[in-house]
Amino acid sequence: MLLELLILILLVSAGLWTVMTRSLLRSAMGLALASAILTIVMFRMNANIAGVFELSVCAGLIPVLFISVISLTQPMTFKEASDHMKERLHRFWGLPLIVVVLGVTLALVSFKYKVTPAAIQEGKPDVRFILWHLKQFDLLGQIIILFTGVFGVAILFKERNKRG
């Protein structure tokens, strides 16, 4: 229980660091870190396959995507960045305060809900079975959205033509 709590606190701090840190590159790294910690949480909740996805895609692919966008869009010079930092701190100082206060309050107030969760299925089906037999329409949707992404990249990343 204590370990769980520690991991979750780590997760929140990783999220906080991602948002608060000065440089965008570190921010992307923080995102990868948050994803990696989330993967640990997932593994501890018996969600292995989804955990692997989270680790490979969210902790691997998306930070790479962000870093390539950052490098494509010329980061600020060092001096600009340090000026920017002061101003950022001015805007963001409230966030850790809110997070800590809210976290402690919520932890103290144990709100009760009277919900009887659904009957637990017997003979737990495998995730592969569910994806293939019950969620096949969603799989089709995934394929379609991947193609949408491909066309989107083809259209959006192409250099603008002359007449614009």
């Binding site: 909740m45 396959i49 989804a50 998306i62 089906p125 995730v127 994806l131 969603d138």
Partner: peptide, 19 residues
């Protein structure tokens, strides 16, 4: 105790998120 369904959803969510 419905982790299988939740995992199926999360995998789909991740794919959509990337796109």
């Amino acid at each position: 105790q419905n982790t299988a369904l939740a995992q199926a959803l999360v995998i789909t969510i991740i794919v959509i998120e990337v796109v």
